[in-house]
């Protein structure tokens, strides 16, 4: 039995199965990060004093990471657009850049974390650092998840392009939606933790 609407959109919803699935998943992710952002607000409002992130955290490094993630979202959408234009070699190039930029983000994050640990700063140091490590750590795990999916689509998973190009293009779009969500979380994390 063939499963319907894996490649083409269902006429009444205008969505194929994968897109509906990823949006349901992203809705659960919104609740997860929403709970953490709410916790942050409640902790901050309830605290007698709250440190300014810009005085404790490395803002230039975080700014570079923001630029890196915005660039990676551009290369991600370009890889999808390349498939829409039937240009597979450009897809490989742009997806490769996306994976590379994701690693750059993680390397910068590694330096940021190790700098904190070398100064004996851990999640248990203060409430601020607890929420900082929790939120950026969870975000980092999502970046690693994105790398795994994108690397699969860049490498072994791209065989589908020959057998079912429309479905493969849809898969890249779904991975792109997830990646944009991860980037969007950072766009909120950066000012909330580092600037305010």
């Amino acid at each position: 039995m063939e499963i319907p609407y894996t490649a083409t959109a269902r006429p009444d919803t205008g969505l194929y199965n994968g897109k509906l699935g990823i949006w349901l998943f992203l809705a659960s992710e919104v609740m997860l990060f929403g709970a953490l952002f709410s916790s942050y607000i409640l902790l901050r409002v309830g605290a007698p004093v709250w440190p300014h992130g810009s005085e404790l955290l490395n803002v230039p490094l975080a700014t570079i990471n923001t630029v890196v993630l915005i660039s990676s979202s551009v290369t991600m959408v370009m890889s999808w657009a390349s498939l829409m234009m039937k240009d597979f070699s450009k897809y490989r190039m742009y997806m490769g850049f996306t994976i590379l930029l994701s690693f750059v983000f993680l390397v910068i994050k590694y330096f940021e974390y190790t700098s904190k640990f070398s100064h004996d700063i851990f999640p248990s140091t203060s409430t601020f650092y607890a929420i900082y490590f929790t939120m950026t750590g969870l975000h980092g795990l999502h970046v690693i998840g994105g790398i795994v999916v994108n690397a699969y689509l860049w490498g072994p998973g791209n065989k589908m392009w020959k057998s079912d190009p429309q479905r493969f293009t849809n898969r890249v779009e779904i991975a792109g939606l997830y990646w944009h969500f991860v980037d969007l979380v950072w766009i909120f994390l950066f000012p909330v933790l580092y600037l305010l």
Binding site: S73, E173, L177, F181, P191, L195
Partner: peptide, 22 residues
Amino acid sequence: MSLKAFHILFIALSVLLSIVLS
């Protein structure tokens, strides 16, 4: 919402972030 629409939303929020930072 397609990746195209989500990308535009993302770029709009990035513009907003740049302005706030500035």
